[in-house]
């Protein structure tokens, strides 16, 4: 009641808008700090290094693009990303004997269906996404071992090598990442479902009371996330040519970290796929600089964690009212 009655006068609001946001300032500071460090780093400004940065961002980036939609739809993070990508990789490798196209389609279908079902429970039942995806992670992981018999799944036939192609010196996955980022951004900005996603994420109760299709919109977001996970899984499979149960490693949290560094708020209703792309690249650049300067893995991970923490706090302070 108070805040309704005492909305700030328009002039003050405009003045506030004219000032650059705290986030913009923080990013500028980051660039100012990072840039001299980066350019003075030996071998940073080489084509090979730029390729390495892009390549290392590709797989986490693809998953993160999908995770962005799910997070925009409202405080949802998935704890089952690694397991899903692993199962997709297994399906892909096991069905390669039916041809690359069939195997790819089956793999994508697996990812979309498995993830969209979780979206169904979140969207229509309002199931808690964290608990649900922990359960799904156990089910998918357990199921994967059951079907694979606990042994690595290797390619049933060749033909996947084309996915490892590097046109213009960049892995195919980088191009797919860019295409998916643009596609996701287009869905978010231009389609009805994408626009409704922001509304559902910002205020689910209001979206429900207004009769918006909360359930359907949520399922669309999760299905797209499933697609991204499946693409990640297919690339993982073709890089490694065989799939073990921990193929996807730390994908789950790395993807969430990229989304958060992109400035998407965990509370939902805000965010963008292109900024997630930026987040994934920023993490990649910082890891690269630290690597080139001779810091070990531990320091790279530590800095990544602190970066995520800083961005989360900044985004929160900026969005607070």
């Amino acid at each position: 009641m108070m805040s309704l009655l005492t909305a700030p006068p328009a002039a003050a609001v405009r003045a506030r808008r004219a000032r650059p946001g705290r986030l913009a300032v923080a990013l500028a500071v980051l660039v100012v700090v990072l840039l001299p460090v980066a350019v003075t780093t030996e071998r940073f400004l080489t084509l090979g290094n730029a390729r390495a940065i892009l390549a290392s961002a590709a797989l986490v980036g693809i998953t993160a693009i999908g995770a962005t939609l799910v997070m925009i739809a409202g405080s949802a993070v998935s704890m089952a990303a690694s397991q899903t990508a692993t199962v997709v990789a297994m399906v892909f490798l096991a069905t390669l004997d039916r041809g690359l196209t069939v195997a790819t389609l089956l793999a994508l279908l697996t990812g979309v269906v498995v993830t969209a079902v979780q979206g169904l429970a979140v969207g229509y039942w309002e199931a808690n996404p964290i608990v649900l995806t922990i359960a799904a992670g156990f089910a998918i992981g357990g199921g994967a071992i059951w079907f694979s018999g606990g042994t690595p799944v290797s390619a049933a036939a060749g033909g996947y090598e084309i996915l490892n192609a590097t046109p213009l010196g960049l892995p195919l996955a980088v191009y797919v990442l860019l295409v998916l980022a643009v596609l996701a951004e287009w869905i978010l900005r231009r389609t009805t479902a994408g626009r409704q996603l922001y509304l559902v994420g910002e205020n689910r109760a209001a979206a429900r009371a207004a009769g918006l299709p909360v359930g359907r919109v949520t399922v669309v977001a999760w299905a797209f996330f499933g697609l991204c996970l499946a693409v990640t899984g297919v690339f993982l499979a073709s890089f490694n040519t065989s799939a073990t149960t921990n193929l996807a490693g730390t994908l789950t949290l790395d993807a969430i970290a990229a989304v958060l560094v992109g400035g998407t708020a965990i509370a939902g209703g805000k965010g963008s796929a292109l900024r997630t792309l930026g987040g994934a690249l920023l993490i990649s650049v910082i890891s690269d600089v630290l690597l080139l300067r001779g810091y070990e893995t531990g320091v790279q991970i530590l800095v990544k964690g602190l970066l995520v923490l800083a961005v989360v706090v900044l985004v929160h302070l900026r969005g607070r009212r």
Binding site: S3, L4, T192, R195, Q196, Y198, L199, E202, N203, A205, A206, A209, A210, G211, L212, G269, K270, G319, R321
Partner: peptide
């Protein structure tokens, strides 16, 4: 506030929210 508007969204976006 709780069950009506999307307060962080612009006025225009709120006006068309239910007819996208």
């Amino acid at each position: 506030k709780g069950e009506g508007l999307f307060l962080d969204k612009p006025v225009a976006g709120n006006l068309v929210a239910t007819r996208l």
